[in-house]
Nucleic acid binder design. Structure first.
Lengths: 195, 195
DNA sequence: TTTTCAACTGAACAGATGTTCAGTTAGATG
DNA sequence: CATCTAACTGAACATCTGTTCAGTTGAAAA
């Protein structure tokens, strides 16, 4: 019963990616078969190959698109003024951007091992580009005399780790509203890099 | 050629666990087959079932043993004096304990999705028990007037996230000696919870 | 109405999967 | 010496894996 009403590719295509993101976030790349994914979408396994050359490309494309969007979105959100304002914008952006994209964040973080070497290198480059945004802000703050830290690179990693760890547990923890969590994290980051 | 010299179970047993930890940390639980694991150990796949009832139990036992040891080791390292000293001991312990156990940390952190529901609950309980150690220290610090923070529970998660993120990249980054990394992290944590 | 073709099916491919178990081996035991 | 048995092999089980492709469908174009 192909093509019940109109062209399907612009319906099935996004469906494949949504289902893949959801299933892989829940069970892991290696644990999700193309047949499970197809069943979730509502097609046979063979039909998936109209939307991806293979399983590996499906994973890579999702991770790359996510990271590219993170970087572009932050560059738009960045006030590009003083370091204090930029750091605040970074913390706020990071939390608010990632929260409604928990599956994509989870996949981009947990499935690095399942990328081919070339794909891994490409994703690492993007990840590094995002981290470099934060590192630049910290170094600007040092130059302005607004921040003080022992090592900007490691502090960058520490802050990213702190913020990203957030998404491994916020789902279950409905205790506090987003605004409050954001304020708590801002307080921690702000004090940690203060002079 | 069974049993070439002496009893093998006390040699093969640890070998199985070491190989499983290494392979699963590198490729993921679902991506490592019992045959790959057996080849790494130097036996046939069937022989593994002398050392674990099934693949799932192998994963669970490794995670449980690791977490139990983390908790017991910290309880011995805990000076149980003032909050400032205890926090410093926690940060130092966490970094120094986890560093030479990178594979175990990685598996305990990344493979939660591959645990059966009952096993997941058991592991979560242990993870929570470790986090509770840190939370207790932070609350003691608040009571003593040594620390100030908006929310002790979330600050606990943030600090753990910050410290644990460390182990996803330290391998590659031989730039700084351990003592220095420890000092950098202590500086960040100390300032973040300061009054 | 006939033709076209994007979208999909369903079967097939060769090989991998976790797990079981009857049988084999060789060091330890009496 | 013979016996015992922990430790292991190797084959088998049913099922699943990613991927390919000839064939089918039905809405849209001519």
């Amino acid at each position: 019963m192909a093509r019940k009403q109109g062209s399907h590719s612009d319906i099935t295509g996004p469906k494949v990616r949504e289902a893949a993101l959801r299933l892989i976030a829940r069970h892991g790349y290696a644990a999700v078969s193309m047949r499970q994914l197809a069943a979730e979408v509502g097609v046979q396994a063979g039909a998936l190959y109209n939307y991806t050359p293979d399983k590996q490309a499906l994973l890579f494309d999702m991770m790359r698109d996510h990271l590219v969007d993170v970087i572009e979105s932050f560059d738009r959100a960045d006030p590009k003024t003083d370091a204090q304002s930029r750091l605040r914008a970074f913390v706020s952006f990071h939390i608010r951007y990632h929260l409604p994209r928990a599956d994509a964040v989870f996949v981009a973080y947990m499935e690095l091992r399942n990328l081919s070497p070339e794909n891994f290198a490409a994703i690492e480059k993007l990840r590094r580009a995002y981290e470099d945004r934060l590192e630049a802000i910290l170094r600007q703050g040092e130059a302005e005399g607004a921040f003080a830290m022992k090592d900007a690179r490691i502090t960058t990693r520490a802050i990213i780790g702190m913020l990203t760890g957030f998404f491994t547990w916020y789902r279950q923890e409905g205790r506090l509203p987003l605004e409050e969590v954001e304020a708590i994290y801002w307080d921690l980051v702000c004090k940690a890099v203060a002079r």
